[in-house]
Design a protein around this nucleic acid. Sequence first.
DNA 1: TTTTTTATTCGAATAAAATTCATTATTTTC
DNA 2: GAAAATAATGAATTTTATTCGAATAAAAAA
Lengths: 154, 154
Amino acid sequence: MLNSALDPTDLEILRLLQRDASLTNKELSYKLHKSIATIHERVRRLKEQGYIQRIVAILDRKKIDKTLIAFSQVLLNDHTATTLNTFEKEVVKFPEVMECFQMTGTFDFILRIATRDMEEYHLFYRKLATLPKITSVQSFFVLSETKSDTAYPL
Amino acid sequence: MLNSALDPTDLEILRLLQRDASLTNKELSYKLHKSIATIHERVRRLKEQGYIQRIVAILDRKKIDKTLIAFSQVLLNDHTATTLNTFEKEVVKFPEVMECFQMTGTFDFILRIATRDMEEYHLFYRKLATLPKITSVQSFFVLSETKSDTAYPL
DNA sequence: TTTTTTATTCGAATAAAATTCATTATTTTC
DNA sequence: GAAAATAATGAATTTTATTCGAATAAAAAA
């Protein structure tokens, strides 16, 4: 592997580690029929080359009291660089904001918000609404989680 | 700790492992001023009690050719248990669907879709639209990612 | 409070895993 | 095809995880 270009072994490693990054090199070596040292070198390279960004613990949000998930659609007054940059710079500071995407279509940003309950969401909403140049914020709340996956199909 | 109820040590462990689960017990023990064995026991318990659901590798989606992220808002014909269950059962089978939430408000489900490009999204969209009892699918596309976090504030 | 029981922490010993390295095999380049 | 570069391997070493008994702290019972 000169540079980049993933072979079937790399892809299988990525598939497996996306599901369970606590697999040992030995376990991976069984599954992939390669030596432990080879697996070690492959994983090292996948990290070095940036395919694997990081290894994280996924928590049960209900156990840590993040019961309420909301999607907030934000519309801004205008789309000058200053307005967009200011909004982005400010919105990422809110700990309630898990994700923020600028979007095509009928609104400018979509935020995924995690709070304990509606009261806490309301407090967040009031903070958000006072940011400059905000035209509107529409909130939608998660009733139930059908699927929630961090692993991309490969 | 008889059962549940997280103390400051547990919370700090969860905070750190949400950011970087490749931290060793030794590194955690430095940061938290506890022995390695204590850290080991705490982490074991946090997993056993389900606070830590799993350890996963987060990939750089652009490097694995998932350039296009879409949010698809789905409206169903009706909300009988059968209609809802059938939709949920079918939609989770699509590999393009990273997340699916049932929502309050003007639509029934929001999906987060990861594809290589618009062509692949279009193919997905046509598959999705043929599921039974679907009234409408509205698609919004991510222009830029301002924040994307799996770690909850604790 | 005092005693008893239970849970937690700790350091040391052991087991397992990660990492390094010299060698061999394989692929690529010319 | 030969030389050079890249990748794979097993063994040795280093580091980490895991276990365990004793000490300590905390909680429950008397």
